[in-house]
Design a protein around this nucleic acid. Sequence first.
DNA 1: GTCTATACTGAGATAGAC
DNA 2: GTCTATCTCAGTATAGAC
Lengths: 201, 201
Amino acid sequence: MTDTKQRIFDAAERLIAAQGYSATSLRQIIAEAGVNLASVHYHFGSKEELLDELIHRKADLVNRKRLELLERAKAAAGPAPVPLVAILEAFLLPVAEVATADPQFVQVMGRVIGEGLMPQIVGKYFRAVGERFFPEIRRSVPELTDEEFGWRRHFLIGAMCHTLYGHSEAQGDFETRIGYLIRFLAAGFEAPAVKPAEVNA
Amino acid sequence: MTDTKQRIFDAAERLIAAQGYSATSLRQIIAEAGVNLASVHYHFGSKEELLDELIHRKADLVNRKRLELLERAKAAAGPAPVPLVAILEAFLLPVAEVATADPQFVQVMGRVIGEGLMPQIVGKYFRAVGERFFPEIRRSVPELTDEEFGWRRHFLIGAMCHTLYGHSEAQGDFETRIGYLIRFLAAGFEAPAVKPAEVNA
DNA sequence: GTCTATACTGAGATAGAC
DNA sequence: GTCTATCTCAGTATAGAC
């Protein structure tokens, strides 16, 4: 990657993490990076594609770790359903790990999710991983209807985003926070169904 | 309220509900309302203050109902702690009620929360109600440390926002959805503490 | 291939005439 | 109260230097 592109990248990450995406103008970014305005469009095409690349790298890092942990948990479980807590750990611990190593990651993600720029970007970079994880969770709560399971999945995503990516005041240790979250979510998923699924004959 | 102001108000609500706040320009709003650009600034001061007024009314409606239900639940409980489910119902059912009667409410709120415009607005219109509710919830889970309780509160808010206000595809009946959410949250709050609080002598 | 200079359109905001 | 005209700054596009 050329020096100019890298400097745009770094400046954009720093500024978006600190101020948010909409609040950060390309002119701010190029001032901080010490490059020309048009070079952003030369290297990235548009402001949105710059953001896309930013998310892309971060997301890939987390997603690889997630799938790795999931495979390990599946191997350990054998034919039995993977324990719910193990699935949740595989999904959430990688986020804590990356967040601890690179705090800007959480901030950028938080900004972008928060600003509602995600319908497409989330789809592009996170849907595939979700489709690997949720069927596993589904196996461990077979007594739920599909409808109720779908909503519990929403609750998980909501709690996770708000907690990890939320522009929260108190930060604290990510590992601890994730530990609390996993306990909370596991209990929520294992709660008796409001409308239990019909048991098949 | 003057006719012009009301028309701006209505057009803004419709457009923001449908497209989001950032994606809706004042010029779109005035075109739909059939008024002059400067009249927006005359009546509201700025685009952001227009949004603020929009949220203000919606929020007040929900918050009044919330506090009413909470008082009723407290009266029914007497000196005993209010049952957790009753507190959650008092907090969440009013949202479903308003959402059913006026679907644009949920959409506008969803947009605004999603777009991260809320640090101030949430504080202005929702913090006070939160400070009435969370001490009640706290009483029903005394075995948690303050730290862990604080995070569970975050999980609740995250799940709620993502579920109610989330730009979700599947909508479905709000009452049902809230029922699922309450079950999930109650179980999460009542899960054993990761780090139990020291028991006082 | 890479970067600079500059121009274009549309955003929110504002001053002042009426 | 309302409207016109105008300001600043945003993202974007492109012509042309190197």
